[in-house]
Structures are given as structure tokens and as C-alpha cells.
Design a protein around this nucleic acid. Sequence first.
DNA 1: GCCGTTTTCGGCCCGACTGTTTTCAGTCG
Length: 598
Amino acid sequence: MTNAEIVTLLSHVAAAYSVMDEKKHYFQIVAYKKASEAIESMSTQLTDQYEEGKLDAVPGIGPSIKKHLTDVFENGKSQHLEKVLATVPSSMFPLLDIPSFGPKKAYRLVTEFHLTNPKTVVQDLQKIAKQGKIAKLDGFGPKSEHDILQAISEYGMGVNKSSRMVLPYASEIADKIVHYMKRCPQAVQVETLGSMRRKKETIGDIDVAVATKDPKKVIDYFVNYPYKDRILEKGDATASILISGGKHIDLMVQPVGSFGSLLQHFTGSKEHNIKLREYALKKDVSLSEYGIKKITEKSKTQKVRESDQTQTYDSEEKFYNALGLDWIPPEIRENTGEIEAALHHTLPKLIELKDIKADFHLHSSFPIEPSHDLGQDTIETMAKYAEKLKYHSIGFSEHNPSQKNHTKEEMKRLVEQRNHVIDQVQKITKSVRIYKLLETDILPSGNLAIDNSVLNILDATIVSVHSVFSMNKNDMTKRVINGLSHKKAKILAHPTGRLIDKRPGYELEWEELFAFCKKHNKALEINAWPYRLDLSDILVKRAISKGVNLVIDTDSHAVSQMNLMRYGVDVARRGWAEKKNIINTWPPEKIRSWLLST
DNA sequence: GCCGTTTTCGGCCCGACTGTTTTCAGTCG
């Protein structure tokens, strides 16, 4: 059972409760949604938590949901959850993936028109809408019928609530729109918001904030964005457009004086904001995107809007400080302890891109006849670029020469030839120390793919898994630790092997691996390749808490890819990494003695 | 159904926007 399946299950339970009686089940609905969202944002598998007996360590999972999930893991289903789901027609669930469809609308339509087949329900509904039958229902009209048709057609083209982009792709779109908005004469300040600002590994919608004295003009300017497909919403303070590719861009506008509150509010995460508001309520203040409002007896009972009493903030620092908290970097606003740390002034001083002085995972074009892909640029080109980046250390880590096609002696000769080129390049790039590494496969047996005679002519090696991903957790852990045990092996590259949205990666006994790495001074890699970002933020945080050192590498196969380092730093920041936790920020001599230690 | 720097009971974030409505329901973030 994957996380995605559990997320679907729990959100469907919440939807079923909403249909049954939203008022009566209000808090169950909130609880199931909360649990579902918490699991969605996990980057480890819930089954792991279950196996370790730590299901309720997940925020939002308490005794009751824990019991139901345990049933699901043990028996494939939970009697209780099945019972709840059975109160509504299962044909309503596929509709929930379509934008603008919630539980009420989905239920109403499938019951009203007796749509019972979940497999065809979307097409069936489309047919009915085209016949003009929806507009005749109470509470619906021609416009909502039209909107339903549009939503279904866009859904058919891949627009749905859950589709997300990887960070670099989203960054490209965001940069364009930010650039466009900055040219709006009335825009004083322009910032991204949401998961984009928090640098999550995948991004849903792009959210942009603008500070202005003239919201109307800014919103008019925004909805005229030349690359838009159509306008989704347009109000006094917000607007939303759809761009080609089915991505939403949301705009939030606010006066300069309350821009800090706006940034805070829409940067989220949702979990962070909920926690922050709960905390604020205890201090008798209420938070919104406009600022902080003192709760009086009158406003409690009458629910009157007392905007004149709202204290506004032009910066986020002032907003957080007003609550007695230190400013919290956007990357760690996930309700994983940052609010408590801000309260006690114990927030980490997160690593920054400028701290990075090394990159150990570079694939050059040297014809080493590798087991996997070769790089595109020469050792010299890449070393020169490292100088430009002001690095003091780099390492060439081509894949080891293919075992299948070469004898031990041939492999050794190839590596010697490569080392010779490195020596030549080292003479002309004095400011960067170049290490002779390889990226060596850890075979299913746990042995390394190259012989000691080859390993001995290296400064050190990165090791990684590139085959037989389907081993069980125990065996895979043994395999990895075995590979990492070689005295020349210093770094475990892309430790889970996952590819975002393509391949889940293999499971490891993390506590065992962390303990091993700490004891033997091995590093785990944060691979900055956009589809890897492996280790993930959550595992980074766990590793750091166990005292494991990490290294951020780009895994570059071309010189331009050396710029991907920023995405690795984003992951490290999201994992609460400080400079000291990341080996490529260390001074050159410290790196040298670590890398060459045996 | 979850959760704890007032608490193991009694609370539970806050608001915008749209369509179909004469004051609100549904959806979204």
C-alpha cells in the first residue's frame, strides 16, 4: 500500500463524512483531511512507520486512525473505513479529482442522475451536461453547467488537483511571471508564495504576491498576462489564471503596509499556518493575511469584522516578532517543530548556496567506457567552471568502467589514463583541488564493481546502487552498508534511488544506516539532480538529528548542470541543515583529511 | 478524531471568490 493510496483512502473517508452530515461529523472530517494531508507531504513510506510501530508519530494520526490503518496494512482493508465509504456511491470519488468538484457537488450529481459506474462517471456526466440537464437542477444554472463542462474538458487534458511540477520547471514559469509583474507600474514589490517560496521538491500552483496602492490596476494587468489560456477568478484582492500546460497562477494583492502578513499567510504551509493560528489564539489574537487582530469578547460573540483593529505588518519579521517568535525561513515552515524553535530562539542557521565550496559528483566526457552514462564536457571545462564558481575542491566521479566489457587490468588502465588527464588539468587550475574519484556500483552481493587494484589508485570513491532495486529492506540495507564499508568508499550517492514521480526508490533501515555512517565517518549525498533530490528533506532532517554528515552534489553530466547545486541546497535547507552538517562547506584541509582518511 | 507552555477534556484557522441566491453553500488555499 503506497502513501498515495492511503492519502486517497483517507480523503475519500473525509468526503463520505461530508456527504453524510457535515455538521455532525465536522471534526472527523477535519481529522481525516489533516491525516491525509500529513501523509501526502511525507517523503518516506507510511508502511515503514507502521513496521516500526510508529504510525501515531505522524502528526494527525491518533489512536483511532492508527487502528484503522493498522487494519488496512494487516488485512488489506479496514471494516470501519469500508463501512463509512459504503454510505456513498463509489462513483462520486473519481469526480473529486476534477477542479471545482467537492464532495457535495459530486454526490449531488451522481445521485441526481443515477451515475453508478466509477469508470465512466466523468464521461457520463459530460454527456449529461452537454444535454443541458445540469442547468435545470435547483442550485445550478447555465454558468455552473458551462463551468462543469470546462473543468471536465481541462481535466481530460491533464489538469487536475494533484498534478505537480518539479521545482526547476516551476521556477522557470515563476521567474517569467514575476518578471512580467515587476513591469507593472503599480507593483511596488513582487514575490512568489506557497510551495514555490518554500522550495518544495514539487510544486502545484504558482502563487505570486504583489504589494501595491492600486490593487485594481495590478489585477487588471495580471489577467492580461500574454501567456494565459483563460481567467479563472478575478476579485478585489486575488485573481487566478490558467496558463498553457494547465497550470494555475494565483495572484494575491495587498497594500504595502500589510505585505508582510500577506507573504506570511500565503507562503504557508497550511500545516504551519494552522499551528501558528492555534498558538496565536491562545494569546487571544487572531491571524489573517491582513495582520493580527486582538480578540475581544464582542468580536468573539458577534463575529463582526473589525478591520480597524487589525495591526498590519509590512515585513514578515515584524509579523513573527509580534507573536514573540523569531522569523522562520520559508523552507522549514512545515509544522515540524519550527514554531517551537522560533519561540525558544533555537532555530537553525540554515546553509546557503554561497557556503558551498565543493562538488564531488561530476561526470566528465573522458572515455572511461563506463557501466552507465558518460558526461558531455571535458575534465578541463568542468574544472575551469568550478574555478568560476569559486569552489576550492571538486571530484570527478565517472561511473566505473563496465565490468562486463573489461578485465581488471583494462579497468585499471582506463582509470590511470583518466587520472593522468586530471593531473594535467590540475596544473592549470591551481585554485581548485581536484580529487580522483569514481562512482562505483554496489553490486547486489554488496561487493563493489571494481577491484582493489583500481580502488587503490583513487583518492576515494562514491558508491551507489544502479541495479536490482527490488530487494527487500533488510537485504538492501546489508548491501549498501557492505559497499560503504570499503575504506575507500566515502559517500553513498542518491541513497534511495528514487526518481520523483517515476520510481519510488528502495527502502532502507535508516536508523541502522545512520548509525553506521556516523560511526565510520561516511557521508550521505543530497543529489541535486531535479528528478532525484535524494536524500529527501525529511530524511535529511533525520540524518542530521543522528549526527550524520551530508554532502550536496550535482551529479553533473554537463558543465551547465553544475548550476543545479541550488536545488540541493534547497533540500538541505528544508531538512534544517546548517553549514557544519554539509561537507562541501568545510575548509579545503578538513575536506582533504576526511576524503583521504582510511 | 486529534491534541496539550492554561488542558487527558473541550476545544478545534481564516478568509476569498463564484454562482445562484436575496443571505448562503460549496470550493479552494
